[in-house]
């Protein structure tokens, strides 16, 4: 790992100032993506701004009809939170599927979203649930926030502070893991919201997380796995690599979407 200067701000404002003042500075929270790439010398930020000591940034609470999760809430905290389990059990389950227990003790929701790994789990939840990603500057919809592989709308001095998830009527996440890396080869998050249905897919898209509108329209008519009978996803635009062809991923999306609807409707 190359040398860097370590900063430990006490507030989000201080952290943003450090980012503004120091070119190419990077934010670190759990470090479970950034440190591995720094060790491989794929990233060499001259400054690290550690968010993990900012108080009040890791809270989990209900605000009206929204579940609000602080940016530095760890995956293990989301997975075991009674508040999350009550409001959006699918989200708690998703958090419990990330990495392994030790990784979940360090990794954070804000870090996962800011990294926008095309195989990460949280982006699918944000897109399907219609979350609002709140930063120190503004509020972003997932469609604006996620901008392709490892790319987000975040400015260089912008920091995610919390994520607001409107509580759905029903939801489920089903993940098909790569047998070696345990990341999602394909993951499908299905949410029946008061006004519509959303189906978001991670792991498969060559531009990162995306929605399957054909499935959404069918499920909006009736929220049953039977509505997906005969529906498929084109392989075009899906990832194809040694872990699976685009056609295989397309097949998995249809299978997992069906299973997710079954799980959400208690039929699994």
């Amino acid at each position: 790992m190359y040398d860097f200067k370590y900063h430990r701000p006490a507030t989000v404002r201080q952290a943003a100032n450090l980012l503004l003042k120091n070119e190419d500075a990077k934010v670190i929270a759990g470090g479970h993506t950034l440190l591995p790439v720094m060790k491989q010398r794929l990233a060499s930020p001259p400054h690290l701004v550690d968010l993990s000591h900012i108080e009040g940034l890791d809270g989990i609470e209900m605000k009206g009809r929204s579940l609000v999760i602080g940016a530095t809430a760890r995956h293990a905290d989301v997975a075991s939170s009674a508040i999350v389990g009550e409001a959006i059990p699918a989200l708690a389950e998703l958090a419990g599927l990330i990495g392994d227990p030790a990784v979940r003790h360090r990794g954070t929701i804000g870090g996962s979203l800011a990294n926008n790994d095309p195989t990460a789990d949280y982006p699918a939840a944000c897109l399907a649930l219609g979350a609002t990603i709140v930063t120190n500057k503004r509020r972003l919809k997932p469609e604006e926030f996620f901008q392709g592989l490892f790319t987000t709308a975040l400015a260089s001095d912008e920091i995610i502070t919390r994520v607001m998830f409107p509580v759905p009527k029903k939801a489920a996440y089903v993940k098909f893991r790569n047998q070696a890396s345990r990341y999602a080869l394909v993951g499908v998050f299905v949410a029946k919201r008061p006004s519509d249905v959303r189906v978001a897919v991670t792991g498969a898209g060559s531009e990162g997380v995306f929605r399957v509108t054909a499935f959404e329209e069918a499920l909006k008519k009736r929220f049953s796995h039977k509505m997906l009978d005969g529906l498929t996803v084109p392989a075009q635009g899906l990832n194809s690599d040694l872990h699976g062809s685009a056609e295989y991923r397309a097949h998995l999306i249809a299978v997992l979407a069906r299973r997710a609807v079954e799980a959400a409707t208690g039929k699994a």
């Binding site: 370590y6 430990r8 670190i28 470090g31 479970h32 440190l35 591995p36 550690d50 993990s52 293990a76 392994d100 227990p101 030790a102 990784v103 003790h105 360090r106």
Partner: peptide, 24 residues
Amino acid sequence: SQCGACVVHLDGKAVKSCTTLAVM
């Protein structure tokens, strides 16, 4: 951070010490 040979407890919780900075 795959193998777990480096697991220690940080404030009572298992973490991978190869993927944690000592300053943290």
